[in-house]
Design a protein around this nucleic acid. Structure first.
Lengths: 359, 359
DNA sequence: ACAAAAAATGACGACGTCGGCATTTTTACT
DNA sequence: AGTAAAAATGCCGACGTCGTCATTTTTTGT
């Protein structure tokens, strides 16, 4: 592994001049520049970051700390997004999975310090609240897909579950649906709460009577090993009197269960029952027939945006406190699983009440 | 950021003694050891890897080069497996996604060299053949999920698609199925070839007549944007005269299509038709009702095993040439989507021919 | 108690790079 | 041509750590 001095010798200049060429500093004669470049080429010289770092303290490395690569493999897109930003900006990324283990997390922070990392992305694989103090973080940190209840000053980048669910609910109502089944995500998840709240708010805003809404919990249990009742829940809903014309699912996995449940009962989608999901897990949402209308969790963007934010913190560009925190939209992805109801079918007669949207 | 000298001063010893303590070298008086540890604690000293590296040339860092995080997000488990090995063995991991771009790949190799990385895992996100020379790799390299047609000497760790498919086919035959539909994976994929070949070999070995086999291609087109015909293909198969009693799918995504196609036609699974997949994409295979019998792609193990192999190369423990290459088993995961056929239904009468397994 | 061996500790320099500053070469201007 | 300013280049040392080897302290055996 040749060093800068080897290059200097070959090019017949001093090591400092080589350094200048390598770092594109000014004040190098074109002719010298050429000679040095040639020598670099010939020797296959590659600068040594470690040595550079010993002097300049700029590692150009970012750390990513993830809790566990949960059952939903899609959240890896957060990491991809972060990497994309990093490589576009000359940074390298070190990733450590803690698997939710505290000791591993401790070790990871230490590793990051040893590597003189400039900043850390603290990524959770599902949207949740955590309990982290800024003082626990020995390095500049940005929270991704989570927020800290303990310390508001930690900047976070999270998906806006509320708005995603809101858009979906509005869409469903605009298509004329009034009898609605809602299958909730595992209540343990933060997103579950937000999504359900948005659903309720919109439904109330439109004056839909409670009687025409059926809500059930589709998943429950510890994250990672939850029990999924949504298949059965769907079938129960469809077999009740005046069944819902649309089933809104807490996420796409539940939507898959809803499809299976409905199809097995001989219902056609969306002719007999419409279905919407949430998250846009493409392996599911695009694969279903008809393709699923859902709201896309912006995982990739979360990672990308968070890296930008982290860079802001590192380079000290203001943005202190939670002022820098961002909620990113979950845009609705309209596919074919929601059928517009003809006017004639929009009454609520058989579910009691017939309130309509006020506008 | 305190240095080893700050610690030395506080502990009242020389920097070298601190170094000894940090690296657990012998010949330090217990009392001195204690004092130094205390000083380290008090100052929050963390050794600086860069400085260490400048001298010792052992970075304890592995690089992971991935082509693209393809449509199947599951292959990320390869990376997880590699990380698991790394962290268990004191290594840190740098990941770079090339998105299949040659320039990015070039840049990645360079970055790896700059970081004095010890070795590289060259990971492809789907099982395929690549065209890489050992001479293209400036660092010790192990291929994961791919093999090089250009250079046999590159060690590779790949899944054994053939044996996975073989096990699945045998299972299906053992359950008494004789009229079989086979929906092929995109022929562009290396695994598609292997799996189909295994299927054919077993079927032939058992003496099943060609007439009772229906084979169709389920996906085609460029990887990442393929067209999926398998939904329609399934329905066609089920509507033919003497339809297959089991449909074997090139992978689990195709199996999902098969489920949807079958259910929509009113067929029950596995009562009317059995289905098997391949890959064990859990979001699909465990979610389906009934859960899918499939063969598990050992992604995690691939990554873990490959790291071990790479370490072997780095530390020069023989294992030269493709002698070190490994094919890892894809164990069958037996769930509920295959129904054993009662003897009375095992004839081939209506499909022409009635050959039986020879043993 | 004393020498020899063993253990513990320290002084110093090198690793590859780059910042600071001194020195040399070139350019611009009279 | 001569001089001042600007440009180009080089020398030296420091970053934090650890290897080498010298020095000091402790232990062991008589």
């Amino acid at each position: 592994m040749p060093s800068i001095k080897d290059v200097a010798r070959v090019a017949g200049v001093s090591d400092k001049t080589v350094s200048r060429v390598v770092n594109r500093e000014p004040n190098v004669k074109p002719e010298t520049f050429r000679r040095v470049e040639q020598a670099i080429q010939d020797l296959g010289y590659v600068p040594n970051r470690a040595a550079r770092l010993v002097r300049s303290r700029k590692s150009q490395v970012l750390g990513i700390l993830t809790d566990l690569v949960s059952v939903t493999p899609y959240s890896n897109d957060i990491v991809r997004g972060a990497q994309a930003w990093a490589h576009a900006n000359g940074y390298t990324v070190i990733v450590v999975n803690t698997n939710g283990d505290d000791d591993t997390e401790k070790a990871a922070w230490r590793t990051f310090q040893e590597h003189s990392i400039e900043g850390v992305l603290y990524v959770t694989m599902y949207h949740r609240l955590i309990n982290l103090q800024a003082s626990d973080c020995p390095l500049p940190t940005v929270l991704v897909n989570c927020r800290s209840t303990a310390d508001q000053s930690l900047i976070s980048v999270t998906p806006d579950d509320y708005r995603g669910s809101q858009a979906l609910t509005r869409h469903v109502l605009e298509q004329g649906h009034r009898r609605i089944g809602y299958i909730r995500l595992n209540p343990v998840l933060f997103g579950a709460e937000e999504r359900y709240r948005a659903f309720q708010d919109v439904v109330r805003e439109w004056g839909i009577p409670d009687a025409s809404i059926t809500t059930k919990i589709g998943m429950s249990g510890v994250v990672g090993q939850e029990i999924d009742h949504s298949y059965q829940v769907t079938q129960n809903m469809l077999q009740q009197d005046a069944p819902p014309t649309v089933i809104m699912c807490g996420n796409d996995e539940i939507a898959l269960q809803a499809y299976l449940g409905a199809l097995t009962l001989g219902h056609r989608i969306p002719d007999d029952v419409s279905i919407v999901g949430h998250d846009d897990f493409k392996t599911v949402s695009k694969a279903l027939k008809p393709a699923l209308t859902t709201a896309a969790l912006p995982y990739y963007d979360l990672g990308f945006r968070a890296s930008e934010a982290l860079y802001g913190v590192i380079s000290g560009e203001g943005a202190t406190g939670s002022a820098g925190s961002v909620k990113m939209d979950c845009p609705m992805v309209r596919r074919e699983s929601v059928r517009p109801l003809p006017d004639s079918q929009r009454s609520l007669a058989d579910a009691g009440g017939n309130a309509r949207h006020k506008d």
